[in-house]
Design a protein around this nucleic acid. Structure first.
Lengths: 236, 236
DNA sequence: AAGTGGTCTAGACCACGGG
DNA sequence: CCGTGGTCTAGACCACTTT
């Protein structure tokens, strides 16, 4: 009751109870849960839908709801490098390579829905995990949205800083490609030139579908992979 | 009313109407739609949730529901190579490189939840798009699930064949990495040895969370990228 | 203040799965 | 057959955005 809605609370509660259970263990039925937690069945279903979307349970019509066998990963969600590394039990860090304000230009301007002359903050950072170079990240942000950002310490989480400014990407569109590293990139990542890398280009959008961030991440192929779940039909 | 549920029908209906609209155009309110289509507001919300999950609309509490500006792509769903290529307006084809039955072994056995001695069908195919090599695909399937598969023409869609056998992956767990091609792979893909490639390893699961397929796809980096949308929090 | 989407209820019937 | 999750209804109140 304290923070959010009933279904959110119930979802968190069930999550805790499910944690130690083996895969394919059946949960209580929706009707039982509704009685036990003194909520309507619709609320139970909303909570379960959240767990299903998170890859924690699966449901079979006519049979029941069961604990998922998630060997690989939870459904892909939008995360920052810092969050990602902490989840992998690594210590994230970063070194700022370039930080400054430049005109958007046509490519970045188009993607962030700005004019070519509108100023954007450009930020190139080398991201480290446990002091090892992991990823070279180039971010562009509309300058009007992030006043004073360039005066701050940029070696910690950018997403946390944006959050304090009221900027919260809730959705992103990503394009993933395999590339071989150029000389300067290879030098920064401490790999031989031509070593393979995973290039992830992301446009972050806020709750009104406005672009707030455009980031290209170049990950060392030997130290990074992208794990995620997909569904045949989007969940409804 | 003909094929499925009301919310499915309504979702498809709204989808058609939304198609020509500009991004950020507001839809009718949920209450209006409920009256117009003679359904409850809950049903309208179910339909809209589907469109939201598909990246077609976004909703802002207190303001309304709006057409998404999807420059890149719809949310990632589980698709076969054939579907994927047709969506990219390319003509898919394939050449069978190897097809046979082998013992699962510890790696494949573990992933498909079989014993090391259980037989699996191994299928290596070169996938073409518009007659150009695109991807080298190695699939493993539990042999008991696919009797007679090896006697059929395997150059068309594997997923369609599986479907006729009642095998339908609804979910998959994927791991994407960047690699450089080995000599034999490079030869089949017609790229220089050492050329970059995108490696997608997938375990397909049916509606009961049972593994039914394990496929490794090696895509030419110069001809393929992976586009998808992600959300900060899973949709509920 | 008015209107929007978000949450929640109590009830009903349907489609499917298992004994 | 019975019990399961899936769909649907009609209504209510809340949190939020806009005017």
């Amino acid at each position: 009751m304290f923070p959010g809605s009933k279904h959110e609370w119930l979802g968190a509660e069930l999550r805790k109870q499910i944690e130690p259970l083996d895969a394919h263990t059946p949960l209580s039925t929706e009707r039982e849960l509704a009685v036990r937690y003194q909520v309507s069945r619709a609320t139970v279903r909303t909570a379960l839908r959240g767990l299903e979307a998170a890859g924690i349970v699966y449901r079979v019509q006519g049979a029941g709801t069961f604990v998922s066998d998630s060997t690989v990963s939870k459904t892909l969600t939008l995360t920052s490098f810092s969050e990602d590394m902490r989840r992998r039990a690594s210590r994230p860090d970063s070194r700022v390579v370039v930080a400054g304000e430049v005109p958007a230009g046509s490519v970045i301007g188009g993607e962030l829905r700005l004019s070519v002359d509108d100023p954007v903050v450009r930020l190139v950072r080398l991201r480290l995990a446990d002091d090892e170079p992991m990823c070279l990240e180039t971010s562009y942000l509309p300058a009007v949205l992030v006043p004073g950002l360039l005066g701050e310490d940029l070696s910690s989480s950018l997403y946390e800083k944006l959050d304090t400014l009221g900027i919260r990407p809730v959705r992103a569109e990503q394009v993933v490609t395999a590339v071989t590293t150029e000389d300067t990139e290879a030098g920064l990542l401490v790999v031989p030139p031509g070593a393979p890398a995973l290039r992830v280009q992301r446009i972050g959008l806020d709750h009104r579908d406005q672009p707030v961030e455009r980031t290209t991440s170049l990950y060392r192929a030997d130290r990074y992979d992208l794990k995620f779940g997909v569904r045949r039909e989007p969940l409804i």
